[in-house]
Design a protein around this nucleic acid. Sequence first.
DNA 1: CTCCGGGTAGAAAGCGCTTACTGCTCCGGA
DNA 2: TCCGGAGCAGTAAGCGCTTTCTACCCGGAG
Lengths: 359, 359
Amino acid sequence: MSVTLADVAARAGVSAATVSRVLNGNYPVAGATRTRVLRAVEELEYVVNGPASALAAATSDLVGVLVNDVADPFFGIMASAVQSEMSPVPGGGGGAGRADGPGKLAVVCNTGGSPERELTYLTLLQRQRAAAVVLTGGTVEDAAHTGALAARLRRLEAAGTRVVLCGRPPMDAGDAGPHPLTVAFDNRGGARRLTDHLLSLGHRSLGYLAGPAARTTTRHRLEGHRAALSAAGLGGDAERLTVHGAYDRASGYDGARELLWREPSLTAILAANDTVALGVCAALRERGLRIPEDISVTGFDDLPFAVDAMPALTTVRLPLHDAGAKAGRLALGREEGPPGGVTTFRGDLMVRDSTGAPR
Amino acid sequence: MSVTLADVAARAGVSAATVSRVLNGNYPVAGATRTRVLRAVEELEYVVNGPASALAAATSDLVGVLVNDVADPFFGIMASAVQSEMSPVPGGGGGAGRADGPGKLAVVCNTGGSPERELTYLTLLQRQRAAAVVLTGGTVEDAAHTGALAARLRRLEAAGTRVVLCGRPPMDAGDAGPHPLTVAFDNRGGARRLTDHLLSLGHRSLGYLAGPAARTTTRHRLEGHRAALSAAGLGGDAERLTVHGAYDRASGYDGARELLWREPSLTAILAANDTVALGVCAALRERGLRIPEDISVTGFDDLPFAVDAMPALTTVRLPLHDAGAKAGRLALGREEGPPGGVTTFRGDLMVRDSTGAPR
DNA sequence: CTCCGGGTAGAAAGCGCTTACTGCTCCGGA
DNA sequence: TCCGGAGCAGTAAGCGCTTTCTACCCGGAG
């Protein structure tokens, strides 16, 4: 059937142990022997049996990346960045045969934002004895789920899997302070800067299209927004001018209509993210409102298409790629987190054409 | 350290074999025993050791999905669709304990469009003894690579891994006709319809912004375009009015400038895909050209943002989700391909606001 | 000339699970 | 009453690899 270590050993005239050692490069093997083995591997087109070696060595080279939605560039970009860190260091140090193997296999798993699927994948990864797991994006704020998740993560770590949180707030769930390996975004600060920008332009009647309630990302952005509003003495109406929806275009479209229905005199609408903002723009255009002359619109994340929207979206740029890469390095243990454990990336305000002074 | 089958067996007062059978549900086990085992599993929080079972059973529940770029929604959508088919059939037939386990683990691997990385991932998947592999998107047309790829795929199949091609032309590389499990897009036909649309609008001077040369997708779309042109007796200038670039926004921007430099009287520009079209629009706007009054623009794929571009993009809709889902089912062997082996999805013309009659 | 130790290679014991194959118990039919 | 065969559960032989421990070979020191 399939070529095994033993076949290679036979062909090279050595023992299986020697072949294994050549392949893993962690034990001295004489040059001539090594060459012979390598040739046999070549000739037989031998490919290691991953499960077998994972079983014997009690480790695997799988790294799981959990995302809420692979089809969303927000996650796609982070996943891609994580993955870009998985190959063995290019210029490698020692110069030994094959420094670090072909690298880890980063696999991205699509949870669809569902806590159950998240747990399911974590189990699947645990049973694969994954080397590390990166959880990206915000999470549902639900006691039951948070508990189950924390428990599962604890078990994963107990089993030697490195767990890193990326773009998700540290979970100080219960016991020992924040999770040690966390890369977070300053959603609160970004949202606050965005609202402040609108306020400084003279807006006084702002609508907010929030993401799904009970998600950390949603809450943090909303808090930043409300903080800015309160500081300007505009907190009173906040509740009424907030509409929750999903992080997608349709929610933006529907939400904008709802907001305008509640308050026709709105001069600005802040969307939960860029995708939502696109929906908002569509609804506004349909209603014959000009952006930003009649009404300003903002996004969040600064996904690649934000600059191409019409008009180009004022938004908050999140360093998605950098965060993902950092998470990847943490996952590989190639880099340590700061003393506190949490690396926070700031979101910078990108002022473009979708915001202007109110009429 | 970690809980094993034997621990569960001991706790339930049965043999390891029985526990295994309960967990896999492929052998009769008395109700009472089953319950006892399940309880023990619960109490011990037992999680199967994937590598061990993969080794023993010579199969694993990993399904690899290779994509050129996770950060690109084109691939994200397909990957997401493939993944959506991986869970065990919801309403399941037999009703046995746990029909099909927690489903397969679809893992997406980012090749970045590089043939080497593609091969590397294939090796990684082969060593994990993946149950199936789905290759998405076009591929490089290079004899050396095609050969290496075909060889590797053949070996994967020999090892029992099911290989399916999605959005990639069937590879009749050499021996036995087209690859049996293929889901393809009619890129040629879509491109032809797009060009015909422009032609029927009265355009006679069309620029084409192609993707990277030597990629199947690029070639097919270009062929469709040229075919329409030739049929209209406009083939002569085609070569000069074609510019190659990457499948990204920057290429669209640069390409549009180049095209306009070569031929200022262009009345339409066809972009290789929607993302490229966005770049084209940006360049055009910058130049003060109105779309579609001064010049028409078209995309390809109909990604979600196409409808939100300004103006909304005329493009060809590719049923990305359906194709991915189909590929997923083929990968699981849950569905058979048609007799010929290749399922082709047609691309429908979506006429929107970015095209109009020339001045 | 013997002895010792560094440098290599081999033997063999598992890693945790699956799965023939074997064995037991209990039933109905002869 | 005895026998055959369901129906379940246990035994044990690996799956292909890693790794500890042991064995060997050789050069140089005593």
